[in-house]
């Protein structure tokens, strides 16, 4: 009988957990990475800051919901969303076809092109595949930038890093000859002391299939309601000047893009 009772208890627990799925969105958990300045990063005392974080806070305020931030490794961020560890990803995630097969996206909330950075004394002439032949090119894994390098720059020797912090170390010490990432992320890093080693070689022409139409908010496919709420809130902060206020806090140009 003990086994039966245990089974009954298990069923009851499952029912309770399942019942909690009946969703009211008074509280939304936002997943982000926390290693992608200036969009999202952690301060020394563990506070999340950045453009993504401020946009998320503005959206939550607009939707009148309570938001809680959860940080996740970039590699595991989509599985984390699917497993219900958080309800939305606001982490500069580009809206691509590959990802759309797994999750839904809101409209874009910014769009900036990728770029390549090299050491200041680099002899690399340009950003074409022929120019980059045989050089060690670093990128963060599971990103549109690493996919771009794999597809469009096959002659380069691609090295994948878990976060941008590691490729920054390796280009500074000369293990790799170039890195590819978002132009804003690279510029922000080059402006710091750590980025003194390097310069922007040039921006790349984004490929619509690989790079997508900009960064959006990823939502589980079954949560259409939350997606609509986010889209409305996004339109609202774009209209009422809140977006511009956040934009100007971080950038001297418009990141929303055309």
């Amino acid at each position: 009988m003990r086994v039966l009772r245990m089974a009954a208890a298990a069923v009851a627990i499952l029912a309770v957990v399942g019942g909690a799925e009946a969703k009211d969105w008074s509280k939304v958990r936002i997943g982000t990475e926390g290693a992608y300045p200036p969009f999202n990063s952690l301060t020394a005392d563990g506070q999340l800051i950045g453009f993504d974080v401020d946009i998320a806070k503005a959206l939550c305020e607009e939707m009148k919901v309570e938001c809680e931030f959860v940080t996740s490794d970039w590699d595991g961020i989509i599985p984390g969303l699917q497993a219900g560890k958080f309800d939305a990803i606001i982490a500069s995630m580009s809206i691509t076809e590959e990802r759309k097969q797994k999750v839904d996206f809101t409209n874009k909330y910014y769009n900036t092109p990728p770029a390549i950075a090299v050491p200041k004394d680099s002899k690399i002439a340009g950003t074409s595949d022929a120019d980059l032949k045989g050089i060690a090119l670093g990128a963060q894994s599971s990103t549109t930038h690493s996919n771009y390098a794999e597809e469009k720059l096959p002659s380069a020797d691609l090295k994948l890093y878990p976060t941008p912090d590691e490729y920054k170390l390796d280009i500074a010490n000369g293990r790799i000859d170039a890195v590819v990432d978002d132009v804003v992320v690279l510029s922000d890093w080059l402006a710091t002391d750590d980025g003194a080693c390097c310069k922007i070689l040039g921006t790349l022409t984004p490929d619509l299939v690989i790079n997508g139409e900009g960064a959006g908010i990823a939502i589980r496919k079954e949560d259409g309601e939350l997606k609509d709420m986010m889209n409305e809130a996004l339109a609202a902060i774009l209209a009422n000047g809140k977006y511009k206020e956040i934009n100007d806090k971080y950038f001297t140009f418009d990141v929303y893009g055309g």
Binding site: D75, I78, P79, R99, S141, S142, L160
Partner: peptide
Amino acid sequence: GETRRAYSRTY
């Protein structure tokens, strides 16, 4: 490494 790469493309 290859596993992670394949996973990151397909989930």
